[in-house]
Design a protein around this nucleic acid. Structure first.
Lengths: 336, 336
DNA sequence: ACTATCGTGGAAAGCGCATTCCCAATTCCT
DNA sequence: AGGAATTGGGAATGCGCTTTCCACGATAGT
């Protein structure tokens, strides 16, 4: 069907071995004159190396797999963009899978990547408090076979990657909110089985406790826009901001949840931040177009993706990078 | 390094051929008892088929390539999610490349996909008025070798895909805006060399002309948030909404541009829609969190991606689907 | 001048799997 | 009961490429 290297070799009147040597990065460089002949032949015939065959013969596929929950979620798409950037120069292709946060599909994705013998696997999704056993074993066996693994957000002890200091960052954010004058807090903690959500909530809560301003309520729900919306709607049914205490400040463990919550607040006819203040986590790019501007803890999402990409390229034994977020207070938590 | 099919065959005490037959969808089904033995061996050894080798032996890679401008752009990430959905059931993997809208990288991406012998290539990016020759030839040769091609948005005559009726949709939107009472129009037309941008602008402009309400200005710039911001900022320097004519209605040829423009309007201290009205195109999911809600022409982005995915799976000779957008007027163009 | 090095191109052996033949064992038909 | 038709497993070939390993001529060394 397509042009093979053999055809090019014939056309150029050289052996297969020689053709391979000139067209691909071999250590041995054939003579200039021969090189030109081969290159000319390849050009003339429109030769494209068969990456599958190359992968089989060498033992590297030049493929890396990325698994995310949902590529249309700005959190993940920012990371994906970063990973692309990190891989860009090296001519490596990205195999992408959105799992919809379903555990089974996550595992299936990793299996598929293993089948495709990707040189590395990058996983950006939230680890669970329990039930990650199978995934972990899979990844360890993958690593045992020479595969690189980097996780973004939460890492496994054995795999390494980019670890976010969720608790510390949430704690910092709580501190800033206190400084800003807030004294009433509620947290939308998302799914308590996701370690990311849990660490963020816990970090926030314990900082406030240490400061003598315990949170009023910790509400659980889905770790999504929908979850933020529903839980917030529910909460608002009994909500009152009293004159003397001022508005409650709601901390959502992700910006996406915060956006859902904001929608709920609006529908309830309340004003932000006058009647209720709100803060998120991540600083997804979407926030730039939201009014009022929403307070959050900024994570260098794209950068994190890039680092993960570069990390797996480096082939160094799995490192662990810890990144912290920085609180950024905006209009949504302004107190008057 | 990893377990091979041969190992499984040995473990099960059968031939390589038999092992292959039971573990992969072969026409010939070995006896039940043998099948069980092989499956048990595979399980025990932790066998993963080598997709590269399979691809070489069969002649299909179970890979499809998707090229977009920027995966972090909600327009493209919506489409990407749709494509994933469309491919989901079939166990096909997605090879993703963001090109940053650079022509060279677009071509490089297609080349890479061809090298990887992807079964199909889906391209979602804006065609140019000129300079697409090379890409087109590449795709035709790819098709000649049995590859499926689907383009999303703008298609090449030879390739097929999901064609958006940009002109017609823009025209409809203009019609609605007229009905809503607007009489002064400006269009931020983006990059005039992108056929998508051009068709949208042209469709809008000509509808208004036919209606006897010619647009006041057509402004060009980058087809991006930045572009919308800059061009709008520039325009606003000389802007006045007079009492008798009411505010100008600015049509941006994409939502992303509209968001940039809105930022500019805000910074300029003007209110939407009181001082200036604005409409976009695409209805990207991001809009849901923007206030005031912005008018636009809704495109079923995710659906388009899904259709493209299913189209290339169908292996039918490249079809062409035309989709139209539907105008949806929201707060940003409310006239009082 | 003769042997000990290089430097270079070619032949051939895989990489891991699908698949076409081929052959032995059954089953079927008359 | 005997041969034909059928079933089911195994040996071998090839997918397109990389990479030893060889052979050969050119160069250098003493």
């Amino acid at each position: 069907m397509a042009i093979r290297l053999t055809d090019v070799a014939n056309e150029a009147g050289v052996s297969l071995a020689t053709a391979s040597r000139v067209l691909n990065g071999s250590a041995r460089k054939p003579a200039e004159e021969i090189s030109l002949r081969v290159r000319a032949a390849a050009e003339k015939l429109g030769y494209f190396p068969n990456a599958q065959a190359q992968a089989l013969a060498r033992s590297s596929t030049k493929l890396v797999g990325l698994v995310v929950h949902d590529i249309a979620d700005p959190y993940f798409s920012s990371i994906a963009r970063g990973v692309q950037r990190g891989l860009d120069a090296s001519g490596i292709q990205l195999l992408l899978t959105s799992t919809g946060a379903e555990h089974d599909r996550e595992i299936a994705a990793v299996r598929a990547f293993m089948s495709h013998r990707t040189d590395a696997i990058i996983i950006s999704g939230t680890r669970r408090l329990s039930g990650d056993q199978e995934l972990m074993e899979l990844l360890e066996s993958y690593q045992g076979n020479g595969g690189q693994v980097a996780m973004i957000g939460q890492t496994f002890p054995a795999t390494g990657g980019i670890q976010v200091d969720n608790a510390g960052t949430a704690s910092d954010l709580a501190g800033e909110l206190l400084k800003a004058g807030h004294r009433r807090f509620v947290v939308l903690a998302g799914n308590p089985n996701l370690v990311t959500a849990k660490h963020r909530a816990d970090g926030f809560v314990s900082k406030l406790e240490r400061s003598g301003v315990p949170v009023e309520e910790v509400l659980h729900g889905a770790f999504s826009r929908e979850g933020g919306y529903l839980v917030m709607s529910d909460y608002l049914r009994g909500y009152q901001s009293t004159e003397n205490t001022g508005p409650v400040c709601v901390f959502c463990v992700s910006d996406v949840m915060a956006l859902g919550a904001i929608r709920a607040i609006r529908e309830h006819g309340l004003r932000i931040p006058d009647d209720i203040a709100i803060a998120g986590f991540d600083d997804i790019p979407t926030l730039i177009d939201v009014t009022p501007s929403v307070s959050t803890a900024r994570l260098p999402l794209e950068e994190m993706g890039r680092m993960a990409g570069e990390m797996v390229l480096a082939h160094s034994d799995s490192k662990l990078l810890v990144v912290s977020g920085t609180p950024v207070l905006r209009e949504s938590t302004e107190s008057r």
